[in-house]
């Protein structure tokens, strides 16, 4: 298989397979959850489920001051790599083209130097986050294979992307193919690991807000 053939495969059938597993897996997981349903609450409501639920979906992004103080590292590092991932994934021109090709519309991109710097910051942060996970007693105690797999498949596309962007070590078609391949690995693994939180946290936060809101508490 030549480099170009590999690149063409990962852009073609490879991406096709990854997309099928990714999309099918996500929908499967979401409906698997939703189908379980929950019982109607028979107690008289003191507040609205819907508005509180929707508010919590957004408000839970920002911790209250005391929680921030207590979990400063987790929150700060979490912010950095989540924003970093967002910037790198969604604001890099070639990536936007991919989304545009699928969903039909695009949006303005950031200069590639900004993306480059963001990628470096994100990679470093993810490494620090892993070190912290290995050293913090609670995180280490809670961590299982899923956590490390999730970390690995997240940092891999960042690293391969960085290398491909700078064309280090190999020729561009191979590097880009490897980068896309690493993204495809992420897509295949995504629905069946904790990475699913990207979607399920909307449900979880909504439920959390709804449970509190029903009782008249702002969560």
């Amino acid at each position: 298989m030549t480099e170009t053939e590999l690149l063409t495969w990962v852009r073609g059938p490879g991406f096709q397979i990854a997309t099928i597993i990714f999309v099918l897996g996500i929908m499967l997981r979401l409906f698997e959850i939703l189908m379980l349903g929950r019982k109607a609450n028979l107690a008289e409501a003191k507040g609205s489920e819907m508005s509180s639920g929707l508010r919590t979906v957004f408000s839970r992004t920002i911790p209250d001051a005391s929680t921030f103080k207590r979990s400063a590292f987790t929150v700060t590092a979490g912010y950095i790599f989540h924003i970093g991932l967002f910037v790198v994934i969604f604001l890099f021109a070639p990536h936007i083209l991919l989304f545009k090709d699928i969903i039909g519309f695009g949006w303005p991109a950031l200069p590639s130097t900004v993306i480059d710097a963001t990628a470096v910051i994100t990679i470093i942060t993810l490494v620090i986050v892993l070190v912290h996970r290995l050293r913090d007693p609670v995180k280490r105690f809670l961590s299982n294979f899923d956590d490390y797999l999730g970390w690995f498949v997240t940092i891999l596309p960042l690293i391969t992307g960085y290398i491909a962007f700078h064309r280090i070590g190999m020729s561009a078609p191979s590097l880009i193919a490897i980068h896309i391949l690493s993204v495809e690995l992420l897509m295949v693994v995504f629905p069946f690991t904790k990475l699913m939180h990207m979607f399920t946290l909307i449900l979880a936060r909504w439920y959390n807000g709804a449970i509190s809101g029903y009782r008249g508490v702002q969560s």
Binding site: R29, I33, M35, R38, S71, K139, N144, A204, Y207
Partner: peptide, 14 residues
Amino acid sequence: STVAAFFSSCVHCG
């Protein structure tokens, strides 16, 4: 569904 959504979302952040 709430339990399923919650467990699906936990990232072991501690």
